[in-house]
Amino acid sequence: MSILVYVENTDGQFKKSAFEAVSYAKAVADQSGNQVVALSIGNVEDAQLTLLGKYGASKVLNVNTEQLKSFVNQAYAAIIVDAAKSNDASVLILSNSFSGKGLAPRVAAKLNAALADGAIELPSATGENLQVKTGAFSGKAFAFVELTSTIKVIALNPNSFEVKEAETSATIENYSPSIDAEDFSTIVKDIIRATDKISLPEADIVVSAGRGLKGPENWGMIEELADVLGAATACSKPVSDAGWRPHSEHVGQTGIAVSPNLYIAIGISGAIQHLAGVSASKTIVVINKDPEAPFFKVADYGIVGDAFDVIPKLIVALKAYKEL
């Protein structure tokens, strides 16, 4: 038996979430005395694949064909299913990323496997079953899901499990399962990625601003603050509804749920729907001119003050700190 982990790449590079998934797979494998098999699909060089060994993979299956260079949901799912079967996988782990969310149910359905998505901790075994802690009610609660099927699928939330180095080294094998032509009916036309931007769901630090900023023209200081911190930018719902910022920045119950190490909320009141999506952040800083703003109740640090006064000063202070 083995623990199979599917690792996603971005333009041939593995990101932190991929190493998190391998580290998690390694910890699951150690619980049951198994080995980790990592599966990579797409055009990834050996140097990158070798890195997976450092985090616990004993074997790396490399599927690298022209046809599979970009993500095709059905075809990728078919390959993962094939690899799970041929490696006798008892648990399959994926990142709960945008693509992972599309893959995990397909793979689980084909393997007759139960799926826990949004895992935030290592599973615990109860006999043959696994219990997995997942987020529920958009950050307002956690649910412990028991998986009772023979094969189990777990989709791991980004920023939930620490990357750990292991004393393994991986052998790399080229892997070429056969895939039905009908699994390629989805065709990718274009990929547009802002390469200079940090991806919000995976960011370590998030700088978020709300209606208190008054208008889109005032986001310069928010972006500068994010830049100094190496942070992703986010916003409250009314801000994206008004078109001040793109929808992809909207965090909260009906937006993206984030769990960074540091979440800085500027000019956001802290409505229950906003808090739902950000309360899993490890440290929360609130900057708001209203001392009664509900956000202060769930913050670790706060400044009562005018953002237009505080943020420029904060940028100066952070620059000075970075230069130390």
Partner: peptide, 10 residues
């Protein structure tokens, strides 16, 4: 997708 978008047909 993380950090962007993808356009596809099906």
């Amino acid at each position: 997708i993380e950090g962007g978008k993808e356009v596809l047909t099906l």
